[in-house]
Amino acid sequence: MERLLEVKDLQVSFKTYAGEVKAVRGVSFHVDRGETVAVVGESGCGKSVTMQAIMRLIPMPPGVIKNGTIIFDGKDITKLSEKEMEHIRGSEISMVFQDPMTSLNPTMKVGAQIAEGLIKHQKMHPSKAREKAIEMLKLVGIPNAEKRVDQYPHEFSGGMRQRAMIAIALACNPKLLIADEPTTALDVTIQAQILDLMRDLQKKLNTAIIIITHNLGVVANLAQRVLVMYAGKIIERGSLDEIFYNPRHPYTWGLLMSVPTPELDKNKRLASIDGTPPDLFAPPVGCAFAARCEYAMRICYEKYPEDFPVSDGHSAACWLLHPMAPKVKPPVGKGVTL
């Protein structure tokens, strides 16, 4: 498959009065055309910042891209002018945000908000753009689209607003859609509908999707590959099956154990990961997860582990994979069914 996006050694920091927060500390990954990649991690792990860097939406200052390249469709996004970037946003890469209640302009008709991008990028006539907006609303499964197009966001329910957000994002048929926790703010029943919708639309339009989430359950039937982020770095990557059935990083184990499953013993508590992520003002020298890791070894506190390959396309940054490390039996993996 053809590469659509290639991010190499991306580093993003925020300068605050208390010092520099290293939010993203050297992230590399790629996305192929038409594929779905999930980025998983707790809040504050740098996943949203990475995506905002791809959209060049990081507020600067205080944010600053310290290093790295982002090659999208053959162009290095970090080197484009703001004007050139405008032509990419919304037309080639678009984004769906977490909270549909606040992501739509409350004083503008939904149809007009969909039409805006079309008028800008495809130089569409407003009346034609309105027709296309109706078409998009139908596509994302909003009934009565002809009437809905002239309504305001507050007349839409939460799920419908997120559908409208997806319609805005897909209006110009982008090559890449970044969905930043698109279901977190929704009711559980609506979540499944939105995920189904995204999967269907991806098949129809062949759009590549990066879906950000802190919930591994969300990605189970959507993504082909999974990247696990922790404290500004990718600590494990692999195909969906590899991550679910053969995870290698203790943090990934923790994440998997915190997903409720129907098989879960009622008398057992859902596992959680003790402690909080490290302070990114002064990230630890060694593995950032060591302090929360029950398998931590002395080396974990002293040296950052490099990526150890597990199989083709699957690797994890964990000293447990070093040949000298003691063998540890993962608490999850083969036994987990999802």
């Binding site: 003790d274 909080t276 929360r292 890791c293 398998y295 931590a296």
Partner: peptide, 22 residues
């Protein structure tokens, strides 16, 4: 530089983690 001793099991250290906070 990596020696076998460095792979000695230490376990988690939540208190140290909290100590480095501002």
């Amino acid at each position: 530089a990596i020696t076998r001793e460095m792979f000695e099991h230490v376990g988690k250290n939540i208190s140290q983690m909290e100590a480095i906070a501002r």
